[in-house]
Amino acid sequence: MSIIKTKNLTFEYIRRDEEGNVEGITTAVDDVTLNVRAGEFIAILGHNGSGKSTLAKHINAILHPTEGTVWVDGRDTSDESQVWEIRQTAGMVFQNPDNQIIGQVVEEDVGFGPENMGVPTQEIWERVAESLRAVGMYQYRKSSPNKLSGGQKQRVSIAGVLAMHPKCIILDEPTAMLDPNGRREVIRAVRGLNDVEKITVVLITHYMEETIHADRIFVMESGRVAMEGTPKEIFSQVERLKELRLDVPQVTLLAHELKGRGLRLPDGILTTQELVEAMKRNGYL
């Protein structure tokens, strides 16, 4: 079943100079047609300015297409009357946790969404508790968000979206401002939501390592989907990714280097485990 579908999605905006005269038109998303099935884990890669975030903002109706159509769970995002339904279906988490947390106490912050949806009080508390448990932050429910680390704050932001019971979560570089530990915590929480709760995940990131467990990766370039495939398929193309200003995970790069030195290794190795096994199979270890 399809949860996010775009057909010939194009988004243009008009650039203006200081006096408001039109300078030109930028096409940020250019004729994108894609289909995300319910329960999938999708990663979107692409260099700065490739159109990733603009695409993502169409999924919960922050932006509306200039041309083409976006459907979220069967609802057309350009239909004004459906906007609230769409935003409840597809929740968004942004880069900076400090811009998204408003409550004085963690559980209050997480309850903000369902409260605004008019959920009965008893159920709000249930949702808050279950959302905080899902991201491993239940023991901090009475804390002040100010006292949390970046990774913890970001997990509270995710819980805030979860409490609205979305079918889909879009995360726009959720780990860009975090240290390695915080990054690990957030990615683990997101993978848990996808595995256990079967929530569809769309993860935008610049860290290649975070995408190796995705079901599919889309690589954006100049507003178009330049590559699409499983992590293995995508990361087998080391040179192509470099052309697109991207990278591959360190293990993949090491395997690629070793191949260049004449070792017999398969393409698209993504984890240390896989590399060790491939080395054993071919008698190097």
Binding site: D179, P180, N181, G182, E209, P249, Q250, V251, L254, T272, L275, V276, M279, K280, Y284, L285
Partner: peptide
Amino acid sequence: VGLAAPQVTYILNEFRKNGL
């Protein structure tokens, strides 16, 4: 303390454990 070494460090240690 919430940090890590570069990934290659882990790979090399893994190789060493496996007898290389």
